[in-house]
Design a protein around this nucleic acid. Structure first.
Lengths: 150, 150
DNA sequence: CTACAAGTTGAAGTGAACTTGAAGTCAAGT
DNA sequence: ACTTGACTTCAAGTTCACTTCAACTTGTAG
């Protein structure tokens, strides 16, 4: 049952959506209902994890495309896939930390000056790019929907 | 010129959108063109900063509603507004750090086990909520659009 | 056998934060 | 006066990651 596969923590609709998007696939019963292999659970776990790290489904698709298509993916395959997240996480953490430290300064001054404030222009990253443009590690931008346990 | 106000790093369309959403307001020239006060620059800086911290425009609206409407907001007013971000940032950083440390473990094992992996189920937060449900500080979910310097 | 839950499809809807387009107005330089 | 470019409005379109709906079919417990 796809419903049981759902107990991976995704709504059925999400699972169908992923299949439509080519992130997972399914065998079919004679009657046309989806029957999943164990490997799909692993893929779903990967998707969840990737989302938590901040990847888009598009990036996940790309990543999953790197899996061997002949054999069942091995431990090493998954490991390789997750390897790059480390850097992304470090980057995100660094960005946020800089922001927080900047905040301490800004709380002191209440400035929020366009050009100088670490909050509206964190890390001065964009200083040379556009005049006074605030700029930030894109991965930090918050998504709208939060996942709720069903 | 709104165009110059734009040099706060927002597209004109975004600025108009913010005005339509009630986040900022503008005086008008006889001909109907927007003329901005200096305070608007500060508001824009606040909006940018808030977004970087992870607030939605809705939350920003609420926050801005806390400003005094009689007088020009003082330094202290802005300071009070930014105060609460500190906690949010700490929370985000903690979440990401947990994720990263979990990743180190997972890279070792290549597991991505639904129920046990720190990545697909970081911090075991959801362990009791739903069976095997991955769950995460909502603030970490990534938004789709990244801001590009114009 | 029958009831009913669980599954199927495709299309359309959601929400956040904008962007784009069309059609027209205003301001400034020559 | 004319041209150019910046500006105006309003409506509609975009992206992402789904969810919801309607109408129907399968699978299974009793």
């Amino acid at each position: 049952m796809g419903q049981l596969g759902l107990r991976a923590g995704f709504a059925t609709s999400a699972i169908r959506y992923y299949e439509a998007e080519g992130l997972i696939d399914s065998a079919r019963s004679p009657g046309g209902q989806r029957r999943y292999q164990r490997t799909v659970l692993r893929r779903l776990a990967f998707i969840r994890a990737a989302q938590n790290v901040g990847l888009s489904l598009d990036e996940v698709r790309t990543a999953l495309a790197g899996l061997p298509q002949g054999r069942t993916p091995s431990k090493a395959d998954w490991t390789r896939l997750s390897q790059s997240w480390r850097a992304r996480l470090d980057e995100q953490i660094d960005g946020l930390t800089a922001l927080r430290d900047g905040l301490t300064t800004c709380i002191g001054c209440g400035c929020l000056s366009l050009r100088r404030c670490a909050l509206s222009n964190p890390g001065d990253v964009a200083a040379g790019v556009a005049p006074g443009a605030g700029y930030l590690p894109p991965a930090l931008r918050r998504g709208a929907r939060a996942w709720r346990p069903s």
